[in-house]
């Protein structure tokens, strides 16, 4: 960990001004990822602006559009356990609680969750070539040990996956990210927030230099009747997804009026295929139809030496999660074993 200076910002204006003043400054919120990366000498900030006490990003409130605004600095735990979220967006609660550990969720913030870096082994090894860490050095994962890597939207430059659970649910919910920067405030649709690696894998997202996330807007539709989050991983808790699925359904009887399906653990961003959701519209919520949707979602998926299993696993997970979403009171109890 390098040496750095440290200040506390009290307002978003102060934080954004701090970023403008020093291009090597970083914002410190929960610190669960930034401090980890700095200790591994993977990220080197000259200056940290502690935004934990910034006003205006600390609440969860109903917004004018009938939805909910999540303050960027509300912790993951407070979000997951917030009564409004539990009642109206249980899919989000479930996804958050599937991630990390209770201690980390008590520290990590909503804004920070969107900005976490990949867990790619080669990204984390300061001495291995990695285009994400050091553009132009190559991708070690491509022909290396790639069990945890991406199968969708990859590029020859990078096959890393984005590790968040929360964001998989936010993608399915079509959340909107609110940011503030030198040029003022703007909003970014969730699907546009995270990027695919293409030729610039060092850029995880579309946040511009000097911008900070101030909040996340959840639209009115929360799929509180029919939802499910399924996470498949190498141990039952406290590990990253090999494949995860967030599913939200609006049903009339057993007919699907609206479907949202997002995948985690398979790409550089939460993965959604709108054709598949369109396909499900008006169809029966049956394993057969979820299977067809799964085929559409995984279209174009390419496996590498050690992760080709993810293609079949993701398909099966989509089908299972669709069925689970039909009966969330049974399948979505907090702490229910992932083996179902």
């Amino acid at each position: 960990m390098n040496n750095f200076t440290y200040t506390k910002a009290q307002s978003t204006e102060e934080a954004v001004a701090g970023l403008a003043k020093n291009s090597q400054a970083e914002l410190l919120a929960g610190g669960t990822n930034l401090i980890d990366l700095m200790k591994y000498n993977l990220q080197h900030a000259e200056h940290l602006i502690d935004i934990n006490h910034v006003q205006g990003c600390q609440t969860i409130e109903e917004n004018s559009a009938g939805g909910i605004r999540l303050g960027a600095l509300v912790t993951n735990a407070d979000t997951a356990y917030h009564p409004l979220i539990g009642q109206r967006y249980p899919l989000l609660s479930k996804a958050i609680l599937a991630g990390a550990s209770a201690q980390i969720r008590n520290m990590a913030t909503n804004g920070g969750n969107l900005l976490q870096r990949t867990r790619c082994y080669y990204f984390y090894d300061a001495h291995a070539p990695c285009n994400k860490r050091e553009p132009g050095t190559g991708c070690s994962a491509l022909e290396g040990y790639n069990r945890i890597m991406a199968i969708l939207g990859t590029s020859p430059q990078c096959i890393a996956v984005f590790p968040s659970d929360m964001c998989v649910a936010l993608a399915a919910l079509e959340a909107v990210v609110r940011v503030k920067g030198p040029a003022g405030e703007r909003v970014i649709n969730f699907e546009d927030f995270h990027r695919l690696p293409a030729d610039t894998p060092h850029l995880d997202n579309s946040l511009q230099a000097g911008e900070m996330i101030t909040g996340i807007d959840l639209p009115e539709e929360g799929f509180e009747q029919n939802y499910s989050y399924l996470k498949l991983r190498d141990r039952n808790s406290y590990s990253f997804a090999l494949v995860s699925v967030a599913t939200g359904l609006k049903l009339s009887g057993d007919r699907i009026d609206l479907a949202r399906i997002a995948l985690g653990g398979v790409a550089h961003k939460p993965w959604r295929v709108k054709e598949a959701e369109e396909f499900l519209k008006g169809k029966t919520a049956s394993p057969e139809n979820f299977t067809k949707a799964a085929d559409l979602i995984l279209e174009g998926a390419v496996g590498f030496t050690h992760n080709a299993f993810k293609i079949e696993l993701a398909k099966r997970a989509i089908v299972r999660n669709g069925i689970m979403a039909l009966n969330p009171s049974e399948t979505q109890r907090p702490g229910a074993q992932p083996s179902l």
Binding site: Y121, S140, E143, G144, Y145, D234, R235, N236, S237, Y238
Partner: peptide, 28 residues
């Protein structure tokens, strides 16, 4: 669960930590 992963091209272990070297958690 547990396994140390080696990248033989690099001649080194790739998961020298407790996040990706999986030992059982209570839920296991």
């Amino acid at each position: 669960r547990e396994e140390t992963i080696t990248d033989h091209r690099l001649g080194r272990y790739m998961n020298p930590n407790l996040a990706e070297y999986h030992i059982p958690v209570h839920a296991d």
